[in-house]
Design a protein around this nucleic acid. Sequence first.
DNA 1: TCTACCAGACTTGTATGGTAGTATGGAAGT
DNA 2: ACTTCCATACTACCATACAAGTCTGGTAGA
Lengths: 222, 222
Amino acid sequence: MDSNRAPSARSEVYAKLREQILNLELPPGTALSEKESSLAFGVSRTPVRESFVRLGQEGLVQVLPQRGTFVSLIDPELVEEARFMREQLERAVIRLACASFPADTMKQLETNLRLQRESMAESNDKRMFELDEAFHRTIFEGCSKRNTWAVIQQMNAHLNRSRLLRLVSDHEWNHLYSQHEQMVSAIRDGDAGLADRVMQEHLSLSIRDQAVLRERFPHYFK
Amino acid sequence: MDSNRAPSARSEVYAKLREQILNLELPPGTALSEKESSLAFGVSRTPVRESFVRLGQEGLVQVLPQRGTFVSLIDPELVEEARFMREQLERAVIRLACASFPADTMKQLETNLRLQRESMAESNDKRMFELDEAFHRTIFEGCSKRNTWAVIQQMNAHLNRSRLLRLVSDHEWNHLYSQHEQMVSAIRDGDAGLADRVMQEHLSLSIRDQAVLRERFPHYFK
DNA sequence: TCTACCAGACTTGTATGGTAGTATGGAAGT
DNA sequence: ACTTCCATACTACCATACAAGTCTGGTAGA
């Protein structure tokens, strides 16, 4: 069941750093250092270095030779493009879903909706966030577009640093939930036009978040 | 002008390995090894290792701990999804281009078309391939979607291993060129519907290549 | 006071040795 | 002939030492 019987030091460090960057626990612009991180994690520089390489490729850190490694500033252009890509791909996929969608995957969506209602009742924001992600992922899986979702997730690393604020403004969840419900109905009815419109509106919400974050933390941005 | 005054050993090794994998010079399934590669490139194992990490993240190689590193087999599902993503994003972008496109970037497209005619006359396939890539990239740049193009390029790594065969069947170029011409006209006229249709057809051509390659080299595929 | 310079404390880049897990082939036992 | 076991030769993983570039602060000289 466990693909990695012994999780490597590298993957541990990588996962932890990535999480901290996405959390804004390590804010944009923070100076990292191989040595410092290796001490913090209790490993040698090698696995830390290789984590930096991976994070650098994803654009989450910037490695300047002989100068230092820094958590990347949020690039508004990159964020907007990430939103654009996600919008195009999610709309295309949900149109596919309206043409044909497996029954058991539809069951999963319905279960997910029920869990969303429960989480909203409990005001469990963290759980709600996970369910939101799972909801979208499930649509991709129903259309055999697992890898496409994976690419979106990578792009979303940048988008998500901006979206963090919404987590605290939980009054938005009701709106998002009703959109999720509309999507499921549209897929069930095969109404691609409706699904497309709802998804487009659904994904346009994140634009405003960035403006708010930018105003509050101007030095986080490029 | 040179972003890297002294190209690092790592980036050299990475670029070379990547090129060889995309060339099929290193066919899918080939066993690599840190030691062997380090000897071949005349560097230590460290930069080779870090190249493996990068290539692994792109899905071009598969690193199995304590077992070995292998050039990834071509995953048909991944290839189809790459094609799907590219289609959706290119169609969305060319529709944007029809709404608004900078005059100087339009000049570049026209220049590119002229060079394409010259290269076809010379039967210069390599040049033609480069111009084709530049053509599409220019459309993205005109719409301020540089990063989106970069993501497509990464996905295309998988797609391109399948597209290699087309390079030798140069009789296709005439068809591709006329489609390019139609796209430029459509952008000039702001005819998003036409542009979308042409682009869709344009990008559907690569599907057949995979079938051919798969038939000839079944052991290259997953 | 201001400038030029240099020493030292950083940084990442590269090389190398040792460790642990894995595949393989041959020998010993059935 | 067939199976089991083990020595051996791999593999990637990690730790560590050294190399080379960069920044900083203090100092000597004008």
